[in-house]
Design a protein around this nucleic acid. Structure first.
Length: 698
DNA sequence: GAGCACTGC
């Protein structure tokens, strides 16, 4: 059993004052009893009257172009601030207050809470916009919640966001690509619109760097000493959260096997503490399955009846019903132990968790622009993540967090924040969005964190080869603008454009919708064989893309039946999403003048349309290969067909893949067989310039 | 013979 000790409690620390900035610290402790909004403001620098929280935020928004608000979960910032702004008249005269969130679910729940608190009808004064759902009323809605991605799309039509008076960007510390793009663009917009006020909500740890980013130090026009407009130096307001205290425990010595350490920690919590559910953070499905098995064995060996424990896995690959199990109340006499991936860190909130066990790792995506490979690797989490995980224990009552790493490691070695997503990703979508927004000099864009030049150059190359950018790296017309308009990966968008000309857009739009979601299959751990058999019922010789068409067709024939899905190992929720995306794409295609036409199962044109977007992903089977080894045409890398593919072990001579997944090998996911002559037909420029010695087997 | 998590007119 790992030994733990308590070095004291972990409290949020105050951010240091930025030079020339204003920093308030608001303690909401007295607000617990008297309802939210009354407390004391501790003035750090300038002498100012004591404000209530409401007045403080309004004062700062009034006097500063940018206000950074630091507050933990439960501080009420997300729901209260928009209401304060509304009361103070920021939504008068047809103006709108916008609040972004990085997740759809958060947008919906925050919006409904605010509408309820204000006692207004949802969708009128208070509304939200997320993909597929616009619950707002033009001219009526004054407070609008939206996802960061939707705000970027809105900027494409209205680059200065003229209808908004205040924009609040929530969860900025999570540093999603969309949030980073938005922050860069908002800084630019501020120069043109001094009347636009920003509120950026962040975890303490990121507040300083975000404030520094927005600090322009630009001298305002006007006479000496004359105050014109709000101060360009950001203010930082710190609000204490209402979460309960979480006692942090560290292991005394580094653990070698965090799965075993997790199991023994869980067992000792069960022994020492009589009530409260336990949440264990692990890296992935494999870890979770192994740990659950280990825990059940050890618990049995310790004389604990298996009926005492309710051990549940939690990860995104589970079906909705399986995920819902963790939300059901723990039966009397049982102890609930949830083994989860990062999904429980931000996306799902479990009430009733009193103990958190944190292994200190998570799976993270990294992108290597040189090899153009995205890979998922187990990597140490950041301090910010560790605090977020610990916070999951203190939602209902004081809790405890057991960290399976030493305090020395946490203090001295763990990095403060994670690497922003933009520095770990393929930038193709990001670059085309910026181009569509009129940002031509991508390398010179004012980033909160710059992506690597290699990644940007790679993205520009890909877009150029797709015919989306011209020699001057400007969007081509009409292709470039059309691709930017379609909310998909540019390769998928290009495929859709080609399908219009090839007369198979009905089929291709279905394929595009399926490829843009995770998976249409249910992953049942013990039923691999059954899933494979189910897949075979829809198998198409051409490959996975055509197989998807078969599934979609059969799903429609079943009357979009959930029962049919269940019987065929098809994920019903995924299929409903496919239909939604398909409908959205059809609307956009109509607007772009792409006719909807079916090729009546002529799968040759379908494959040609796919190649129009994915010609760069062509691979050839190695001659005399015994293990199904392929070489990519572009860079002669060794790749294999993924075992989930319908063409696994079929190994056609030439294939085009949708994406590579990198584990011990490079696997091609979603593969179709092709005739190599189609490659040159679809992209002569690419194959001539990229591989002059490329010989076709005609 | 294998899958962190989100997201988008």
């Amino acid at each position: 059993m790992a030994n733990f000790w308590k070095p004291g409690t972990e409290r949020p620390r105050l951010v240091d004052d930025e030079e020339g900035g204003v920093l308030f610290h608001y303690s909401s402790s007295s607000a617990y009893s008297s309802g939210f909004g009354y407390g004391s403001i501790e003035k750090q620098r300038k002498r100012l009257p004591i404000y209530k929280y409401r007045d403080a935020i309004l004062y700062l928004v009034e006097t500063h172009s940018t206000t950074i608000i630091v507050g933990e979960t439960g501080s009420g910032k997300t729901t209260q601030i928009p209401q304060y702004l509304k009361e103070a008249g920021w939504a008068d005269g047809g103006r709108v207050i916008a609040c972004t969130q990085p997740r759809r679910l958060a947008v919906q729940s925050v919006a409904s809470r605010v509408a309820e608190e204000m006692g207004v009808k949802f969708g009128e004064e208070v509304g939200y916009t997320i993909r597929f759902e616009d619950i707002t009323t033009e001219g009526i809605t004054r407070i609008k919640f939206l996802t960061d991605g939707v705000l970027i799309r809105e900027m494409m039509d209205d680059p200065l966001l003229t209808k908004y008076s205040v924009i609040m960007v929530d969860e900025a510390h999570e540093r999603s690509i969309s949030t980073d793009i938005i922050l860069g663009l908002l800084k630019k917009i501020q120069q043109r619109r001094p009347d636009l006020h920003l509120i950026i909500s962040s975890a303490t740890i990121e507040a300083k760097s975000i404030a520094a980013f927005f600090e322009t130090r630009r001298r305002r026009p006007g006479l000496e000493g004359e105050e014109l407009g709000p101060k360009p130096v950001p203010a930082i307001l710190s609000v204490e959260g209402r979460g309960f205290n979480v006692e942090i425990n560290y292991v005394e010595e580094a653990v070698l096997d965090y799965l075993r350490a997790a199991v023994s920690t869980v067992l000792s919590i069960l022994d020492q503490e009589s009530i409260g559910d336990i949440l264990v953070f692990l890296t992935g499905q494999d870890d979770i399955d192994a740990t659950i098995q280990l825990l059940n064995e050890e618990a049995y060996d310790n004389g604990r009846k298996s009926s005492d424990l309710l051990v549940l896995p939690l990860y995104s690959g589970l079906s909705r019903a399986e995920q819902d199990l963790v939300f059901s109340p723990t039966p009397r006499g049982k102890r609930k132990v949830v083994m989860s991936t990062n999904i429980a860190e931000t996306s799902l909130t479990l009430e009733g968790i009193v103990y958190v066990v944190d292994c200190g790792f998570s799976k993270q995506q990294f992108y290597d622009p040189i090899s153009d490979i995205e890979s998922l690797v187990v990597a140490p989490i950041s301090k910010a993540s560790a605090r977020q995980r610990a916070g999951r224990a203190g939602r209902l009552q004081p809790g405890k967090c057991y960290r399976l790493y030493t305090e020395e490691y946490y203090t001295n070695e763990m990095s403060a924040v994670g690497i922003p997503e933009i520095q770990r990703s393929n930038l193709v979508s990001c670059v085309i969005q910026l181009k569509a927004l009129g940002i031509d000099n991508i390398l010179g864009f004012d980033w909160l964190a710059s992506p690597s030049p290699e990644a940007m150059i790679r993205a520009l190359e890909v877009l150029y080869s797709l015919g989306v950018l011209d020699d001057d790296a400007k969007l081509t017309s009409p292709i470039g603008f059309q691709v930017a308009e379609i909310p998909l990966d540019p390769m998928l968008s290009k495929m859709i454009l080609a399908s219009g000309q090839l007369g198979c857009s009905e089929e291709i739009v279905t394929i595009a919708a399926v490829l843009s979601i995770q998976s249409i299959w249910i992953s049942v751990r013990g039923a691999r064989k059954e899933l494979d058999e189910a897949k075979l019922r829809f198998a198409a010789a051409e490959g996975d893309h055509v197989t998807f068409l078969n599934v979609y067709k059969a799903f429609l024939l079943s009357g979009k039946s959930s029962k049919w899905c269940h019987k065929n190992y098809v994920n019903y929720h995924a299929m409903k999403k496919v239909i939604e995306i398909r409908e959205q794409l059809k609307r956009i295609m109509q607007r772009l003048g792409i006719g909807l036409k079916s090729c009546e199962w002529d799968m040759q044109v379908v494959r040609k349309a796919i190649i129009a977007g994915f010609f760069a992903n062509a691979c050839r089977l190695e001659a005399y290969s015994h293990d199904g080894k392929y070489k990519t045409v572009r860079s002669s890398k060794d790749v294999y067909i993924h075992p989930s593919s319908i063409l696994f072990r079929v190994n056609p001579k030439w294939v085009v893949y949708h994406a590579l997944v990198s584990t011990d090998r490079q696997y091609m996911r979603n593969v179709i067989s092709i005739d190599p002559s189609w490659l040159v037909e679809a992209a002569p420029h690419f194959y001539i310039s990229q591989a002059p010695d490329f010989k076709l087997a005609r």
